[in-house]
Simulated scan of single mutants.
Amino acid sequence: MLERHEAEVFLALAEELHFGRTGERLGITTGRVSQTVKKLERMVGAPLFERTSRRVLLTPIGRQLAEDLAPHVVGMDEAVRRAVDAGRGITGDLRVGFLSSVAGQLLLKAVALFGERYPACEVHIHETQGHDAVVRLRRGDVDVLITDVLIAAQPDVVAGPVLLAEPRLLAVATGNPLAGHVAVSLEELAGHPMILVPADMPDAFSEDRNPAHTPSGLPIPRGPRAASFTETLTLVAAGRGVFPVGENVARLYPRPDIAYVPFIDAPPIRWGTMWLRSNTTHRVREFVRAAGDAGRAT
């Protein structure tokens, strides 16, 4: 008979495909992960993973088992959470995270409204970074996150309604010829190096902020890579390149050496709530509802 902890280890390894990361995620040793997998393979009578010194892959049998098993484990979690929520109401602790000053402002409005509705639930606020936002959701450091929707574009993460869609601006040095323009087009990016986001940012975010080509196919030059958003603005001010930002950046980061020029043809930057699919609790759902209501009220 398959035990719950064995299923959790198997499914975590099926997602991570790395024994060390699986152990860190579950708070157990790598040896314990390996022992659990070997036990399951003896039970099944066939290998579930292909292991080499360089990689771990699911076998066809392992992939099928993961697909069949995952909904049942998630269903068990949700059933227990619904029972707990029904018995306790909205109480206990809720850990909410935010990424960037814009998300922080959205979060504070949501926390205030949620606190009015559910004063018995204590909300803990945490700042996250782009490279670890989803990791902290998976690790349980935060229950729900407000961020750029592209940061958390992952299969195991649920995206709530968009709370804010802000127009996109191009940050340029005041000495850049574009600084005097009333507006710019995406096609004009072909003539200016683009400051690159940190290498550990999610692919969807990197592709959005650092497009390789203009809509017509012209290549966009690569500028230096920044380690943080503050460094990005400093590189822009130094004339090392340009960078697309949201409208609120002009208000939150005014600088005499940077001009923020509106785009005429770029999509908005969208902010919203994100949470782990397996952590869809009543508390999380009510916080997401409060965030949406707070956003509509402003």
Rank of each mutant, 00 (worst) to 15 (best):
V162D: 14
L196F: 03
G191L: 03
P119L: 15
G20D: 08
A103S: 14
R168C: 11
N248T: 12
G223N: 01
G160I: 04
D200A: 14
A120G: 09
F243K: 03
V284M: 10
V184F: 02
A226V: 13
G130P: 08
E15N: 01
A266G: 01
D85I: 08
P267Q: 09
L48V: 10
F243N: 05
N248S: 14
P219T: 08
H213L: 07
T59I: 05
S278T: 07
H192C: 00
L58Y: 09
G292A: 13
E6D: 14
F263H: 00
L113K: 03
P155H: 02
V242G: 00
S101C: 08
I28Q: 03
G272V: 07
T298E: 12
R222D: 07
P219N: 07
L57D: 09
G175Y: 01
E286H: 15
M274H: 14
P224G: 01
G75M: 02
T30P: 06
T230R: 14
S216Y: 00
F243M: 04
R54T: 13
R51K: 15
A183E: 11
A237G: 09
I269G: 14
V56A: 10
D148E: 12
L169D: 03
P161M: 10
E41D: 15
I146M: 04
P119Y: 15
A66W: 10
D68H: 06
I151L: 14
Q105E: 14
L169I: 01
F205W: 14
V135C: 10
A152F: 00
V44G: 05
V56R: 07
V158A: 08
R222L: 08
S278R: 08
L17C: 07
D203R: 14
H131V: 02
R32N: 15
T230N: 14
R55P: 09
A7V: 10
L17Q: 11
L13I: 04
G140E: 04
V157P: 00
A190H: 08
P268A: 09
C121E: 11
L40Y: 12
I195A: 02
P167K: 04
E41A: 15
L235M: 15
P155W: 01
R168W: 02
V172L: 06
T273K: 02
S53V: 10
G191Y: 01
V44S: 05
A7H: 09
T281C: 13
G295P: 03
R139W: 11
G246H: 04
V37E: 10
G246I: 02
E231F: 09
T36Y: 05
E8L: 15
F10V: 12
V162P: 13
T174H: 05
P167T: 03
M1G: 09
K39G: 11
L108C: 01
R25E: 03
L145A: 11
H5P: 04
L99K: 04
A291Q: 02
F49T: 09
L65A: 09
P211H: 00
G140R: 04
L69I: 05
L107V: 06
R51H: 14
R21G: 01
T273G: 01
R88Q: 12
G31H: 03
D265Q: 03
R251P: 02
A227V: 12
E8H: 13
Q64P: 07
A204F: 10
M1Y: 03
L94C: 06
P155N: 01
A199S: 05
